[in-house]
Structure formats: structure tokens, C-alpha cells
């Protein structure tokens, strides 16, 4: 009931004309979807979201994997490093967004005003430039979420029996061969789950980006979540925002279905 009711209600709203300034909320069929598809901003948000999802999923998994491989060893201080690495994931996204926004500030930010210039990196404004802003929100998302991927992958790595590596070593396998022929195949299921979780997270990205850029400059970082927010709470059109919500659910479900299919094949 907790899951189904909001979803059904969102679908109901998506086929209603629900604007804050209208007294009646009649059913209007697919009008909200048609209006949405006629908006140039919708296609922009779709593109930005696709870029954001592709980049954040790739880099989060990649960094998570590298970190997990590095810290899946009985070295001195490993536990301390593990604890430090997961810290960004424990911070609320709003706080993370504000923190990085101020760090990136060209006038007073530690990164934007001091570190970059002192290293001779002159890329102009970080958040005021469309390309830099997109890279910045991707970077911050990866910084926040890679630790979560790290935890999932580390758990997967620790489930692989050390005897398999010993056997591979006896057979003369190099470290890379062990990784390719032992680690990766046995980690595949875990990686697919990690990708599924990250795709859901990235498709629904909102708070961190909104705090950092408000979707700007212009609409350079306006992912679907931000567009939905603007339609709902700036244009006061709950019907059209719900239609966008339905589309986001369809995108997530479609992506997850593909990944689950792949997962089933892998197992």
C-alpha cells in the first residue's frame, strides 16, 4: 500500500489538469505528456540526465572498484582508511551540495579561488560555466556515491575465497590475469546490483545539483528531477510534473529491467 498508493496517485495526477490556479482538476488524458514532449527543456533535461547518469554510474563504479581492490588487503591502517572513505556518503546531500558550492566559488572558495589558481589551473568559473558546472556536479556526485559502491564491491570481494587466488597463482597467473579471470567473473553479480542501485540514484538526482547550481547556468545542469521540481513548485503545475515523474519511473524501470535481464544471464 505504501508503495502502490503514491505511484497510482502520481499516475492519476499525470492525467489530470492540476494547476494551482485552477479550481477544478479534470482528467485530461495524455495532454500533460503531450505538453511535456513539446517543451524544448524536456529534451534538454533528458540529455543532461543521460549524460549525468552515464558519467556518474561509470565513475562511481570505477572508483568504488579501485578503492575496494586497494583496501581489500590486510594492510596496516586499512580499517581506518575504509572509515575515512565512506565519510562522504554519510553526509546529507544538501550539506554536500552547499559545501562544494562554496569550495568551488571563484571569489572565496578554497578550490575555485585558491587551489586551482595556485596550481596554474585557469578554467574560469567552475559553476558559472556550462561545461564546468556539469563536470562539477558529476564530480561531487561521484565523490559522494563512490564510497557506497566501494562498500558493495568490497563485500563482494570478501566473498571470494582466497583459495581461488592461490590456485591461480600456482597456475602462474599474473595479478591482472587473476583479476580478469577470477575477480571480475565472481564480482559480476555484485557489480550489476551496484550499477542498478546507482542508475536509480542518478536518474532521480535532485538535491545536490539543485543546491549547487539550481540547474544552471541556463539549463546546463537541469536534470529531469530539477525540471520536475520547477514545473511543480515554480509553475505550480502538479499534473505536468507528475507526468514527468511517470516518465522518470518508466526510464528507471526500463533501465533496471535491462540490467536484471543481464544479471539473470550472468547467474
Amino acid at each position: 500500500m505504501v508503495t502502490i498508493f503514491p505511484t497510482v496517485y502520481m499516475i492519476y495526477l499525470s492525467i489530470s489538469q492540476w494547476k494551482a490556479f485552477l479550481l477544478d482538476h479534470p482528467l485530461v488524458g495524455v495532454t500533460n505528456f503531450v505538453n511535456l514532449f513539446s517543451l524544448a527543456n524536456f529534451y534538454n533535461s533528458l540529455r543532461v540526465s543521460a549524460e549525468f547518469v552515464a558519467l556518474t554510474v561509470t565513475f562511481s563504479i570505477l572508483f568504488g572498484l579501485v578503492l575496494a581492490l586497494t583496501l581489500n588487503q590486510n594492510l596496516r591502517g586499512t580499517n581506518v582508511f575504509r572509515a575515512i572513505i565512506i565519510l562522504p556518503f554519510t553526509i546529507a546531500p544538501i550539506i554536500t551540495g552547499f559545501t562544494w558550492r562554496y569550495l568551488f566559488d571563484s571569489n572565496q572558495g578554497l578550490v575555485g579561488a585558491f587551489i586551482f589558481p595556485s596550481l596554474g589551473i585557469h578554467i574560469g568559473s567552475i559553476l558559472g560555466n556550462p561545461l564546468n558546472a556539469l563536470i562539477a556536479v558529476v564530480f561531487v556526485d561521484v565523490w559522494t556515491k563512490a564510497p557506497f559502491m566501494f562498500l558493495i564491491i568490497l563485500a563482494g570481494l570478501q566473498g571470494i575465497s582466497p583459495s581461488l587466488y592461490r590456485a591461480a597463482k600456482i597456475d602462474g597467473a599474473s595479478a591482472f590475469s587473476s583479476f580478469r579471470h577470477v575477480t571480475l567473473p565472481l564480482l559480476r553479480r555484485v557489480l550489476i546490483i551496484a550499477v542498478i542501485l546507482k542508475v536509480i540514484d542518478s536518474v532521480n538526482a535532485f538535491d545536490q545539483i539543485y543546491v549547487m547550481t539550481r540547474g544552471g547556468p541556463g539549463n546546463a545542469t537541469q536534470v529531469l528531477g530539477i525540471q520536475g521540481y520547477l514545473i511543480a513548485f515554480s509553475s505550480y503545475d502538479i499534473g505536468e510534473a507528475s507526468a514527468l515523474g511517470v516518465i522518470m519511473v518508466i526510464i528507471s524501470v526500463f533501465a533496471i529491467a535491462l540490467l536484471i535481464r543481464y544479471y539473470n544471464k550472468a547467474t
Binding site: N41, G128, N129, P130, G215, G216, P217, G218, N219, A220, Q222
Partner: peptide, 12 residues
């Protein structure tokens, strides 16, 4: 606001 921000950042 959006289009003004876009002009300011050179997108339009």
C-alpha cells in the same frame, strides 16, 4: 531567469 542565465554564461 533561465534564458538570462544562459545568455550570461554564453549558451544563448
Amino acid at each position: 531567469g533561465e534564458v538570462t542565465s544562459a545568455v550570461m554564461s554564453g549558451q544563448m
